[in-house]
Amino acid sequence: MAEFIQGLGLPEALATFIIILIKIVAILMPLLLALAYLTFAERKVLNYFQARVGPLHVGPRGWLTPIADAIKMLFKEIIIPSGANRFLFLLSPVLAFGPAMAAWAVIPFDAELLLADVNAALLYVLALTSFAVYGIILAGWASNSKYPFLGAMRSAAQVVSYELAMGFALVGVIMAGQSLNLREIVLAQQGGLWMWFWLPLLPLFVIYFISGLAETNRPPFDLAEGESEIVAGYQVEYSGISFGLFFMAEYANMILISVLTSLMFLGGWLSPFEGIPYLEEWFAWVPGIVWLLLKTSFFLLLFLWVRATFPRYRYDQLMRLGWKVLIPITIVWLILLGGAIVGEVGPWFD
């Protein structure tokens, strides 16, 4: 494909540009499809958890439901409340959705299969995910309405708090992987199931996933929405596709957190049977991206499972968990980890 475009006789800069554009489409199209079907999966999984059947009627066994939902959202009217700040009201869904897509630029799907091999990839992802909160805050403020504003305030405080725990967990990954580059972090985990970072960084792994739940405003940390207290939080005044963008941003962020967790703690595209006799050879034909997708799906299931299982946190409990439990644990573990790396504790750091 790349050779074909380069052979067309276009100027080199333009050819490179077109190749990058094609790669972006190749990442984003499956991603958009995946997040449409993640909404379907969520409804189905929640329904089975609650002994119901879920969407059945659109298409064979309900499989066209997300498509119908998307069409419905596209054709609904966008209502702008009177007294709303029109520009920011329409900008904020874009600000929520944009970073959720842009972060995929540095995600490696296999040792060679990635768009941008950036040195500071992990920092880039962290910076972009921290930017997503602007969409929510501005939506709450620009709506000129009480419930959205309360939701926005909750979300701002929550995201800033949990970002610290998340950042500290990432510092642990950087220390263990000796790199900020996601590809090199995965390659540092070679050597089988027990060499993946989930084991030496177990508390950080758990904390990263919990902060991921909080960062994406998913239950049990969905206080920014909290429909029993503040109706639906920051998205009360949104309708049609402007609501749809928030909705899609949330699911895209879920997939992003799941992929990042699999890359940083579960060895990314590495086979789980590495180093095990027979099993390793039997599964050698499986391409790396399949393992990555399987691990990602597992974390996505965990997202839905948590939603089906736990009640919502109360606001002060949420803050306590973030500041008084998660952050101290990460700091203590970082010190222990530093000692383990300096002392070359095997089998991970020798």
Binding site: A127, S130, F131, A156
Partner: peptide, 15 residues
């Protein structure tokens, strides 16, 4: 710069 100022400081500022 983006992570600290945009991601944290300005969020609190906006708050």
């Amino acid at each position: 710069l983006v992570l600290v100022y945009v991601g944290a400081v300005m969020v609190l500022f906006l708050f």
